[in-house]
Design a protein around this nucleic acid. Structure first.
Lengths: 150, 150
DNA sequence: ATCAATTAGTTAGTATAGCTAACTATATTT
DNA sequence: AAATATAGTTAGCTATACTAACTAATTGAT
C-alpha cells in the first residue's frame, strides 16, 4: 500500500480500514466457529435462533430479512431448528404467514451455547487493561452504528 | 441485559462485548457477502486467494492453517480456484508437497473484487467524521491484536 | 362476486464450504 | 528393509446459500 500525504486521504484511509475490518471479521468468526460446533448447531441456526430469543417471535420473512438471507434459506434453517426442537412454527390469523418462536430448550441452548462460543474471546478480552476493554466496547458501538447504515 | 454496578464488573463487560462483537462480525460479513457474489467467487476461495496474493506462495497445509480449515477443505477450495484459473498447484522437491501460487488472473480478480466488496463499507465509513474514522482505525488495531491472541 | 394480481412460504435443484475417515504416495527413522 | 510419519486427495455427510417454480391465501378490480 502506497501512503499518501495529500490532503484528501480520507477515502483511502476509509478503504484501508474497511479492508482490515472485513478481514478481522472473517478471522474472528473462523476461530469462534470452532466452539459453535461443540453445541451441534450451525452458525446460521444459532444466529437465527438468537433473533427469536432476544428479539421475540416473528414471521419467516421478517426473520429472513433480519438475517439477510432469502426466504428459502430461512425456511431450511428453521427446518433444522424445528427438527432439533429449538424453535416452532405457529399458525396465525393470516394463514399464509407463520409465527416463529423459540422453545424453552432453544432459549436454554442458546444461552449456554452463546456463553461457550464467546467464552474464549471473553477470556482474551479479560487479559486486556480496563481502558482497552472500554475502547473495544466503543469500537463495537461504532461498528454497530456503521452496520445500521450499511 | 441487567446492569451491575458491583466492583467486579470486568468479566461481565468483557463477555457482553465479546457477544456483541461476534454478532457484529456475523452481520458485517452477511452484508459484504452480497458483493462477493458479484465476482462469481465464493468467500472461502476469495480469502484463500488473498493469502496467496498478499502473503505469497505456500503449501496446502500452510494455507489450510492460515485459513483455519482442515486440509480436505482447503483441497476443495484450491480445486475451485484452479478450475477458474485463479491459482495453480506446483510440484516441489519434496514430492508429497505442493506449492500453491496465485496466477496473474487471480491477482487481478482479487484486487478488483476486494475493492468492490469493501466499497460499500468504505462509503459508509466516509460518512463518518474524520475523528471517528481515526478512532475506528485505532480500534481495528486493537481488534487485530486481540485476534492474534485468540 | 368473481377473477386477477400479490404475498407468504415451501419444494426442487445446484453450488460452496465445512467436517471425519480412509486412502495413496513419499519421506524419514529404526 | 520395514515401520512410521507426513502431505494431500478422495469419499461421503451436513449446513448454508442461491434461483426458479410451485401452492395456498389474501387483496383488489371490475
Amino acid at each position: 500500500m502506497v501512503e499518501s500525504k495529500k490532503k484528501n486521504e480520507r477515502p483511502e484511509k476509509a478503504a484501508e480500514i474497511a479492508g482490515r475490518l472485513h478481514s478481522a471479521a472473517i478471522h474472528l468468526l473462523r476461530r469462534l466457529r470452532v466452539r459453535d460446533l461443540a453445541s451441534g448447531i450451525g452458525p446460521a441456526q444459532l444466529s437465527a435462533l438468537s433473533v427469536l430469543v432476544f428479539g421475540g417471535p416473528r414471521s419467516l420473512g421478517e426473520l429472513a430479512e433480519a438475517e439477510q438471507v432469502r426466504p428459502p434459506t430461512m425456511s431450511r434453517i428453521v427446518e433444522g431448528l424445528e427438527r432439533e426442537g429449538l424453535a416452532r412454527r405457529r399458525t396465525t390469523e393470516d394463514k399464509r404467514r407463520i409465527r416463529l418462536e423459540a422453545t424453552n430448550k432453544g432459549t436454554k441452548i442458546l444461552h449456554e451455547g452463546r456463553k461457550r462460543r464467546v467464552e474464549s474471546l471473553a477470556v482474551v478480552l479479560q487479559s486486556l487493561t480496563e481502558s482497552e476493554i472500554r475502547r473495544l466496547g466503543e469500537l463495537t458501538d461504532l461498528l454497530e452504528q456503521v452496520l445500521r447504515k450499511l
